[in-house]
Amino acid sequence: MVQSILDAISLGGLYSLAALGLGLVFGVMRLVNFAHAELITIAAYTLVLTAQFPLALSLIFTVLVTVFVALLMEFSVYRRLRGVNPAVMLIASFGLSIVLQRVYELMFGALPRSAAVAPFLRGDFKVAGLSITISSVITIVLTITILLAMGYLVEKTSLGLQLRAASADFKTARLLGVRSNRLISAAFGLSGVLAACVALILVIQNPQISPYYGLNITILSLVGIVIGGIASLRGAALGGFIVGVVLSSLNTLLGNGRVYAYSWLFILVLVILLVRPGGLLSKGSELERV
């Protein structure tokens, strides 16, 4: 029971990190970056392929590689698509996502790559007679740390202020002196860092990396940012958290019917959207063409 609750919270935290990465980019340029999945995947590959190095070194390297790929996406594709219809941008990000998947397949092979990353974080320990997995506790601690750091960055720093301003109204923010290109690059960079964090947690739990490794969590986090309210970063984090908690709880509660967990989750999402079309944290209705 305790383990189930911890699992639910840790999955929720993980999804909220992924959703935050998507939400950051969406906020500044109204782009649903489907290729975020490939950022998570490349980070996971890097972690596994550098597993023989000390963990700290491997982590730094992973963050560098992921941020590099994120910036590459922005410079090579998204910068040229600035201002086009958001639906076209979304489709372009699908295209980019497929390109990267195939490139990974060519580079690393279609079969899963695996290595023990931070093996001391697996297994379980006992508290008051209850056995609890280390990874769920580590996930929760990591997530809270990263969320607090992000909270600090977004609420207290100048970059965070600019990000929030740009999310609220990009045009006005530009008029007030926010440098759009620099800000968008920063948002992509940060989403890369978040993708690396998500990959670290995922790899500890499941070190079998295939070219489609990041796809599932990205789709579900996308659903999360929509139910949380796409307009705000808080909404994104909250929505991701809800999706994670609900999915984990469904898996526990449904027993043999757990194969239908996704169906129940999606139905719940539809219900939430019907009650609050703009997401849980939206203020009033806003028309947006996507």
């Binding site: 958001p86 929509v226 996704y262 999606f266 959207l273 019907l274 703009g278 947006e288 063409r289 996507v290």
Partner: peptide, 25 residues
């Protein structure tokens, strides 16, 4: 009747939910 009440990105993701449920079932 349910999906078309939504607008913008929410509508896109909600239709995705339809695909997800159909495939899953």
């Amino acid at each position: 009747v349910f999906l078309m009440r939504l607008n913008g990105l929410a509508a896109g993701i909600a239709t995705f939910a339809l695909l997800g449920v159909a495939y899953n079932v």
